[in-house]
Design a protein around this nucleic acid. Structure first.
Lengths: 215, 215
DNA sequence: ATCTTAGAGTACGCCGCGTTTCCTCGCACC
DNA sequence: GGTGCGAGGAAACGCGGCGTACTCTAAGAT
């Protein structure tokens, strides 16, 4: 089977002091274990050097995996990052229903802002620039970064409408998208963290006047 | 002095169909002429292959300039693009004062949308991802892509306020930024062109309810 | 125990980067 | 009208990341 090739000189006996640990000999990870290790490395790279400097080589090296293992799972940097970010996706369970639209909106936007301040934010900035070239990636980015936000706003507004706080005409996807869009816009242009005053302004100067039912 | 090197074969008499034309011998452009030729090539590349695929090598080749000439003027792709886009900056003179806030807003957003559909839009998508790494670039991007829009909205709102159409509380930079932000957001996520229904929705479902004085 | 799969490590060719070298043109100055 | 010099054009360089291929081997399945 195949030519023997030159033997790679299996490091006879010598201790590999600089060698970062050879997983050919050591415990070799597979399946989900490896998957998660790569995700972790990806998120660390995102946080440390940002999306622009993140390379497949760096991620592979940090995860002590081979590039081939990465390409077996993801065909591009963008897909890897989009997938890795799912692991830090915000869970909507953490957001309470306080019975007050303004309080709910503030809590939601503050939560989203803190999420953007992590690796997910770095990912978002880079992915937005690349997503439109690939329909699959477009879908993934929209689902992970865009839609969840306005869905949740719509829930808040609906609850507010049943209490009479919110005018019925404001229960549209377009209106629900305003808050998250303004927050994202600020993050994209000014970076993280988003100052709390900005969030309060978005809620008090834009969202509340927009959705409040007339006195 | 120096080795003669192999003569590049100065295409004796024959037409240089594939030969890119040797500007060492031909008319050699300088200063502004060359500057503009590079800008033109940059904008064409933006329109054809987009920001992600735009490389210094491609621009240099298309402009029939040397990479050295490019790097003598701009230290990075981002700076070149940001500078080139200034040449297609929208002029606010084209926007009339119709005496009606809704009409003015529609005209402004439609104009901005058409601008985003050109090379400037491609540039915006890429630059936003890179701008924050460089303070100079950040300033340039904000000035060229962000601030001009809301400045103009504020003018429209001010005129509307003097007519009583617009409630005074809406005359804030934050409110003025909403329209352009929503438009940009849609463009970044869904690409060009922005359907006219989206613009109408932004104006009728968000901006007008937000700024209209109470009846 | 054997077979199969999947991962680690390495090397390869390609391309864009950003720089440098060498030559040549165009311009200003005399 | 010659001449010097600064700017431009082409080409080559080393570097690094890409994406792939190949070898060897550990881990799991049968």
């Amino acid at each position: 089977m195949g030519s023997m090739g030159s033997s790679p000189g299996h490091a006879a006996g010598g201790e590999a002091e600089t060698a970062p640990f050879d997983h050919r000999k050591g415990p070799r990870r597979r399946g989900d274990t490896l998957h998660n290790a790569i995700f972790e490395a990806t998120l660390e790279e995102l946080a440390e050097v940002g999306y622009a400097e993140l390379t497949m080589e760096r991620v592979a090296a940090r995860a002590r995996a081979s590039k081939a293992s990465l390409y077996r799972r993801w065909s591009s940097r963008a897909e890897l990052v989009a997938d890795a970010v799912r692991h830090v996706a915000p869970s909507r369970d953490e957001l309470p229903d306080t019975g007050d639209v303004r309080t709910d909106l503030l809590a939601l936007l503050r939560y989203a802002a803190s999420w953007l301040s992590g690796p997910a934010g770095e990912a978002a900035r880079g992915l937005i620039a690349e997503a439109l070239r690939d329909p699959e990636l477009t879908k993934a980015v929209r689902a992970r970064f865009i839609e969840s936000g306005s869905d949740f706003v719509l829930d808040i507004l609906r609850r507010g409408a049943t209490r009479g706080e919110v005018r019925p005409g404001a229960l549209t996807p377009r209106v629900a998208a305003v808050g998250p869009a303004l927050l994202r816009q600020h993050f994209l242009i000014h970076g993280a963290p988003v100052p709390d005053e900005v969030i309060v302004e978005i809620v008090d100067d834009v969202l509340m006047p927009l959705v409040r039912s007339n006195p």
